[in-house]
Design a protein around this nucleic acid. Structure first.
Lengths: 348, 348
DNA sequence: TTGTAGGCGTTATCAT
DNA sequence: ATGATAACGCCTACAA
C-alpha cells in the first residue's frame, strides 16, 4: 500500500508513453529525461544516448499541455488581424505554417474588429489566457503601437508586418511599398503616360501613405506635378475603387492611366471603364497592387505589384519561434511589378 | 512544515489568481470552486454565490493549460483543410470564431497536402499531440471516411462540411449543391437556352459529382438530353476552366450558355469568350458557383450560386463545442442563385 | 453538499 | 552529471 502501488502500476493501454515510462525503462530519473529532451549541456553522452534510444523505441513525444503548465507558456503562435483581404490572410497562414512545420508549434488565428472598443481588452485576455508564445500582427493592425506595447507588457513575443519601418528588426517584417509603387508609376510614365490618376487607400493607413508617397516620388522624378483632379481616395474595397474611378473619369481631361492602391479597387476602376465604354488598355491603362487571385483572372489581366506575403510571413514566424536567429532573418522584402495586359503605351 | 507553509504563501505579485486564491478568500475548498466553475448541480446556492462573488472580485479565470492537462483534452478547435479557395477558408474561419466568441475555445488551423503520403500520419500526430477538442473538416478532405474514422478513433469530436450526406447529422453540415445547380440550369432553360455547356469539377470530388447531377436533373426535367460535346472537365482552377471553355466553344454548334462548377472556372470561361470575341451575355450566358469575391468584380458581374459558408461553419462549430445541442443545429443549408449580368435570354 | 488525497506530465530547485 | 522533491493549476475518486 505504499511505494509498491506506484511502482507496480502498469502503463495503461491505449495511452501514450510519458516521461515516467522513459525514465523507468532507461533506468534514470525524470529530470534526466527532461534534460535530454531539452538538450541540456550538462549531460553525460552515454546517458543521453541511452535515453534517446528508449525515446525512439517508445515513440515518446513530450506532452505539450504538461509543458505549457510547467513552463507557464504555450507553444502557440497567434495570428492577429483585422481581415485585410482573404488572399493575404491565407498566404500569411501558409507562410507561418511553413516555418513551424514539424515543430511543436501550432497556429491559432484571431481576427478582430478594429473598430470595437473592446478590441484591446479582448486581445489582452486572449494572449494572457492562451499564454501565447508569440503573435504575428498583420496590417493595418500592426501599425498600432499600443498593441505592440500590450504584447511586450504581457511578455508575449511579437512581430509586426507592415509597409514601413514600424519597429526594430527583431519585431518587424517590412515591404517596400513606396519603392514598388514608384516603379510601377515610372513604368506608366515610360509608356508615355502623363495624366496618371491615383486611387489612394484609406486615410490613416500606413500602407496607403507609403503607396501615395511612391506615386508622388515617381511623378517628381519625371518632373511632373501631382494634380488634384487626378487623385481620389478609396478604402481598399471594390466599391470604393468604383466610386473613385467615376470621379476621376468624369472630367474632360481624363487620365490615360490609373494606379489603384490595391487590386480590388483596380477591379472597380476597370468596371467603370467598361460601363463608360472606355477600352482597357487602349484608352486607359490600369495598375493594381497585391497580385491577388482576381488580378490574373479579370479581363484584361491586371498589371500589378506582387509582394512576397508567404516569404514575409515565414520569416516573421521564424523570428518568433527562433529568437536566437531572429536577427538573421531578413526584415525588408522587395516587391515585383507583374506586367500583364492592362497597360499599353499612351496614345498621342 | 505542514499546512502552514502553504497557507502562509502569499499570492505572487504580477501573476493571475488561481483556484487556490479563490478557495482561500471564499473560505471553501478548491473542489468547491471547481464545482462552481463547472456548473455542478450539487451545490448549495449560497455557496455558489459566495464563490462567484470572489471570482468576480478577483477577476479569476481558470487556466486553460492546467485544465487541458487534467482533462487530457485541450480547448482547441482544429480546422483541417486542403483548399485552393481562400475566400471559403476565411469565411469558415469567421463562422467558427463567431461560434466560439467569448468562450474559452480557440481556433487552430491546419492546412494539409492531400497528395502527401504522410498526410494521415501528420494529422494523427497533430490531433493527438494537441489533444484537440474537435475538428472541422472542409471539402474535399471531408469526403475521406478514413479521416473521419481517424478522428473517431482518437476520441476527437469532428464535423464534416460537404455537399452530400457524408455522415450522420451530428458530424455533418451539408449544402445542397445538386438542387442549387439544378435551379441554376433551369433558370438558363427558362431563358430559352437549349445548348447548355457544363464544366465539371475534378473527378472523384463529391461536390463535382453533385453539381453534375444537378445539371443532368435540370436537363432531364426539361426533356433535354445531355450532349457529350457540351461537357468538359476542369479541376476548379481558372486555367482548367479556360481550357474547358476552349474545348466547348470550338465546335460549330457552340453552346449559348455555360454552367461552370465554380467561379474560378467561370472566370476562365469568360476569358475565353473575350479572346474569341464572343459577347457575354449577348452571345454566351455564364453561371458560376460559390459567389467568391471574383464573381461580383469581373465584367460582366457573374450570375452564380451562393452557399452560406459562414452560417454553415458557425453551425458546425456549435456542434463541436456544444455536443448537447448539436442535434438542434441545422445540418442542411440551402443555396441561393445570385442573378447578376452574365445571363441573358437566348437569341433565336 | 462539501472536502481530502492524489494524479495529469512536465520543469525547477536544490541537493548529492 | 544526476536525482529527489516540490511546484504548475486544475480535476476525479472517494470520503465524510
Amino acid at each position: 500500500m505504499v511505494g509498491g502501488k506506484v511502482g507496480a502500476r502498469v502503463k495503461r493501454r491505449n495511452s501514450k508513453p510519458t516521461i515516467n515510462d522513459v525514465a523507468r525503462l532507461a533506468g534514470v530519473s525524470k529530470k534526466t529525461v527532461s534534460r535530454v529532451i531539452n538538450r541540456s549541456a550538462l549531460l553525460n553522452e552515454a546517458t543521453r544516448e541511452k535515453v534517446e534510444a528508449v525515446i525512439a523505441d517508445l515513440g515518446y513525444v513530450p506532452n505539450p499541455q504538461a509543458r505549457a503548465l510547467a513552463l507557464r507558456r504555450n507553444f502557440l503562435i497567434g495570428l492577429i488581424h483585422d481581415n485585410p483581404n482573404a488572399q493575404m490572410v491565407l498566404g500569411v497562414q501558409e507562410g507561418i505554417l511553413e516555418a513551424i512545420r514539424d515543430s511543436e508549434f501550432a497556429l491559432v488565428v484571431r481576427p478582430v474588429d478594429r473598430k470595437s472598443p473592446r478590441m484591446m481588452e479582448d486581445l489582452r485576455q486572449f494572449i494572457e489566457r492562451q499564454r501565447l508564445y508569440g503573435v504575428l500582427i498583420l496590417p493595418p493592425l500592426s501599425e498600432s503601437d499600443d498593441l505592440a506595447k500590450l504584447c511586450a507588457d504581457l511578455g508575449c513575443n511579437f512581430v509586426r508586418m507592415g509597409s514601413a519601418r514600424l519597429d526594430e528588426p527583431a519585431h518587424l517584417v517590412e515591404s517596400n511599398d513606396r519603392q514598388a509603387v514608384a516603379e510601377a508609376v515610372s513604368y506608366l510614365i515610360n509608356q508615355g503616360h502623363r495624366r496618371i490618376g491615383f486611387v489612394a487607400g484609406p486615410e490613416g493607413f500606413r500602407s496607403a501613405m507609403e503607396r501615395e508617397a511612391g506615386y508622388r516620388e515617381a511623378l517628381a522624378a519625371a518632373g511632373l506635378s501631382p494634380v488634384e483632379a487626378l487623385m481620389a481616395r478609396g478604402n481598399y474595397t471594390f466599391d470604393s475603387g468604383y466610386a473613385a474611378a467615376n470621379q476621376l473619369l468624369q472630367h474632360a481631361e481624363a487620365p490615360s492611366a490609373i494606379f489603384a492602391s490595391n487590386d480590388e479597387m483596380a477591379a472597380g476602376v476597370l468596371h467603370v471603364a467598361r460601363e463608360r465604354g472606355i477600352a482597357v488598355p487602349e484608352q486607359l491603362s490600369i495598375i493594381g497592387f497585391d497580385d491577388t487571385a482576381i488580378a490574373a483572372h479579370i479581363w484584361p489581366p491586371l498589371t500589378t505589384v506582387r509582394w512576397p506575403i508567404r516569404s514575409m510571413a515565414r520569416a516573421a514566424a521564424l523570428k518568433l519561434v527562433q529568437p536566437e536567429t531572429a536577427a538573421q532573418q531578413p526584415s525588408v522584402f522587395l516587391s515585383d511589378l507583374i506586367r500583364r495586359a492592362s497597360v499599353a503605351p499612351a496614345r498621342r
